[in-house]
Computed example of a mutant assay.
Amino acid sequence: MHTCSNCSGTEFKEAIQYMKVKEVGKGKMAINGSEVILTFCVNCGTVSNIRLTNPSMN
């Protein structure tokens, strides 16, 4: 069981940030990118994990 490092909570949810992150050096107008998924503690909101939906950014 995973526990929150901030409040010791044990319930987590995921949220998605739809604004795509881009690879450094590709510029703001690059077509490819990846959404960001955040796993957070329901009790205090501390983010325990961040991952990309498209790590290859193709």
Rank of each mutant, 00 (worst) to 15 (best):
M1D: 07
M1N: 05
M1W: 01
H2P: 14
H2W: 04
H2K: 14
T3I: 06
C4M: 02
C4A: 05
C4I: 01
C4K: 03
S5F: 00
S5L: 02
N6K: 04
N6L: 02
C7H: 13
C7A: 03
C7R: 11
S8F: 02
S8C: 06
G9V: 07
T10S: 14
T10G: 09
E11C: 08
E11R: 10
E11W: 03
E11T: 15
E11P: 04
F12H: 10
F12K: 11
K13W: 02
A15E: 00
I16S: 00
I16L: 05
I16W: 01
I16T: 12
Q17M: 13
Q17D: 14
Q17I: 15
Q17T: 15
Y18N: 14
Y18Q: 11
Y18K: 13
Y18G: 05
M19L: 12
M19W: 06
M19Y: 07
M19Q: 12
K20W: 00
V21C: 02
V21M: 05
K22L: 03
K22F: 03
E23S: 08
E23R: 10
V24S: 12
V24D: 12
V24A: 11
G25W: 03
G25K: 09
K26R: 09
G27D: 02
G27C: 06
K28E: 08
K28I: 10
K28H: 09
K28C: 08
M29G: 14
M29R: 06
A30M: 00
A30L: 00
A30R: 01
I31V: 13
N32S: 09
N32Q: 10
N32E: 10
N32F: 09
N32M: 07
G33H: 04
S34C: 05
S34D: 02
S34Q: 04
E35T: 15
E35G: 05
E35W: 05
E35L: 09
E35H: 12
V36K: 01
V36C: 04
V36N: 01
V36T: 12
I37H: 11
I37N: 10
I37T: 14
I37R: 11
I37P: 08
L38K: 06
L38Y: 07
L38W: 00
T39N: 08
T39H: 04
T39A: 09
F40P: 08
F40Y: 13
F40R: 02
C41R: 00
V42Y: 09
V42C: 15
V42E: 15
V42Q: 14
N43W: 11
N43H: 12
N43E: 15
C44Q: 05
C44L: 04
C44D: 08
G45K: 05
G45C: 08
G45L: 07
G45V: 09
G45A: 07
T46W: 07
T46M: 09
V47H: 09
V47P: 13
S48K: 08
N49L: 06
N49A: 08
I50D: 07
I50C: 08
R51F: 00
R51N: 00
R51C: 03
L52P: 01
L52G: 03
L52T: 09
L52M: 13
T53Y: 02
N54V: 07
P55T: 15
P55N: 13
P55I: 12
P55S: 13
P55R: 14
S56A: 13
M57R: 01
M57K: 05
M57S: 01
M57D: 02
N58E: 11
N58H: 06
N58K: 09
N58T: 11
N58M: 05
N58Q: 07
